[in-house]
């Protein structure tokens, strides 16, 4: 299980590769002056990570696209408030996290009962990464689909903040300190969230673990 975490962490670099901070600052300054091309480049530096998080916390491609769009529109609208001495990635993620939290709160109210993470019709949008070679035996597929459903169900038992912290730490491989910075709260608060999330999942999935 540690292997899985490490691998996921590898896929989500805390700092996007291939650009210096100076370049990023130049882009931000230009974008703040209203240069859309610079803003577009900034978006492309971060949007894959944002979309990856989005597809994990929502049910449908439409919702993921809305989340993605809402997040970057918020970034666009409030970019003039960003102070150049802060870390842009942290600031951006704070916006993204708030959008995700709002979404999860609305989701919780709206569809408590709906089956979470329906798989039909999503395959074109979300590539389910196979954990082994494509030729899985059908029994295994059914089994892992069932488990997938159970996990998705269990994740809905977490409150929005616990859910987001858990997604960021367990599935996106981010460090707790970074998550704390992104949420604008202390590392201890994040630790408590993670603790409660783990407790709830343990009891929800006790028969499987």
């Amino acid at each position: 299980m540690e292997g899985a975490c490490v691998e996921l962490a590898g896929k989500v670099p805390a700092q996007p590769v291939g650009r210096s901070e100076v370049e990023e600052l130049t882009l931000i300054r230009r974008a703040q002056e209203g240069d859309r091309a610079s803003f577009d480049v900034l978006v492309r530096l971060y949007d894959q990570q944002v979309l990856r998080l989005a597809v994990q916390v929502v049910h449908s491609p439409e919702e993921a696209r809305d989340l993605y769009q809402e997040a970057f529109l918020k970034v666009y609208r409030s970019l003039h408030r960003f102070r150049l001495d802060a870390r842009f990635s942290t600031w951006l993620y704070r916006v993204v996290m708030n959008v995700c939290l709002d979404h999860l709160r609305r989701q919780k109210v709206r569809k408590e009962v709906q089956t979470p993470d329906g798989q039909d019709g999503e395959t074109e949008y979300f590539q389910t990464v196979p954990d082994e070679r494509p030729t899985l035996d059908p029994e295994r597929v059914t089994h892992s689909r069932e488990i997938g459903g159970r996990i998705a169900q269990a994740l809905t038992r977490l409150n929005p903040r616990e859910r987001l912290v858990f997604e960021m730490r367990h599935y996106q491989g981010l460090k707790l300190r970074d998550i704390g910075e992104m949420c604008g709260t202390s590392e201890q608060t994040i630790k408590n969230c993670l603790f409660r999330a783990t407790q709830k999942l343990r009891s929800e999935l006790a028969d499987l673990a």
């Binding site: 993921a64 999935l205 499987l208």
Partner: peptide
């Protein structure tokens, strides 16, 4: 539990 959680299909946006 972590082993079980690893079985959740990870959805990559295409």
């Amino acid at each position: 539990l972590h082993d079980v959680l690893a079985e959740r299909p990870s959805r990559e946006p295409s």
